[in-house]
Design a protein around this nucleic acid. Sequence first.
DNA 1: TCTGGGGTCCTAGGACCC
DNA 2: TCTGGGGTCCTAGGACCC
Length: 420
Amino acid sequence: MVTPIALVDCNNFYASCERLFQPALRGRPVVVLSNNDGCVIARSNEAKALGIGMGDPWHLNKEKFAKHGVIVRSSNYTLYGDLSGRVVTVLRAFTPDLEVYSIDEAFLSFEGFSQLDQHARTLRATVLQWTGIPVSVGIAPTKTLAKVANRTAKKTAAMEGVCNLMAPSDQELALSQLGLTDLWGVAGRLAAKLEALGIKTPLQLRDADPSWLREHMGVVMERMALELRGTPCQALTLAVAHNKSIIASRSFGQAVTQRHELEQAVAMHISRAAEKLRRQGLVAGVVMVFVTTNPFRPQDRQYVASRTIGLPVATADTTVLLKAAMLATVRLWRDGFRFKKAGVTLLELSPAATVQGDLWTAPDSPRSQALMKAMDRINAVHGRETVKLAASGIERKWKLRSEQRSPHYTTDWNDLLRVE
DNA sequence: TCTGGGGTCCTAGGACCC
DNA sequence: TCTGGGGTCCTAGGACCC
């Protein structure tokens, strides 16, 4: 028996959130802008009807927006996160088997319900009544088809926000009305590759030989074709896993050309990332720093780079993470470029409790101080070593990466600690 | 002259999503 | 002049090990 999967997706989520607290915005075109008011990240239906696209830069569209009376809001992620939580709370009343996929979407198992459409309509009405947020529901045997169903529900007014694609004939009809890039997981590059192979429509993709697809396009596309046929390849992930990476990054208001400016920005990002890390009760084993020049200025020489530093012991101590980040920054710095964006990524995350308790997470704690001192004494660079952190009484096997394997990955902590 | 090969780990980067 | 930020997964290919 196939388990029906429902994808619940909030309509124009950020725009709907803004409307909630300002009813005057209802019925009018509303757009929400990205962090630095750079570009459009959400649009009400009225704004979409004006031809305003996702990602449209604000500075190129100010006049157009003014002309059409478009209401422009800066984004308020705290508000959106709060409302997202309320929506999820309501959804949990309908089934405990739920995967929160993003801030405005969740996959729900509808296993055991016979009146799927009615159940979805009740859910939709309840969410609207209790939170004020309109949602659409797509029901299908697989996640990929549930995405198709949800899209169809949004596009077809007569469906009133609910589309059930459990029946193969309905799947066929819905797929026939889409292009390749309408599919979840297919954007421009993959679509171009598929077309070069003679696959030009979602139905052709569905009917292609999976093993042939795997050979020419990889395992992801093979799974996609199977999911389009109604064979689930992606289960609901009900347990909430901790993050695998934490990023903090920003674009510069003005291009950065001096190293100290970049270092200052990286220090800020590390501080933010470390806060997130501690808030989630995690420690990081790897620090990466990345920079890019401005791709919208083709007249500039372009440079996109990242450097990765492995730590001898996973930590959430800002001081330690900062030292690693500073070394990475020195290593990727190049004179003569105009940098537009910089950021840090924390990787190899694990719960703090599994790494000698929470002690590492306390900034400037005696244990962290001890770690810093211990790192001073680490000399070995090549081969496998057992790093003894005698000062902290902790011994941990650490496979040191050799410098020959990659110039970007270092465990030369003397080098690291020389960086001021 | 002949010059292994499979398994695994790692990094970098591509591609996508919201 | 001004074009976001935060994530995940996959793979090619180098390096290493035995």
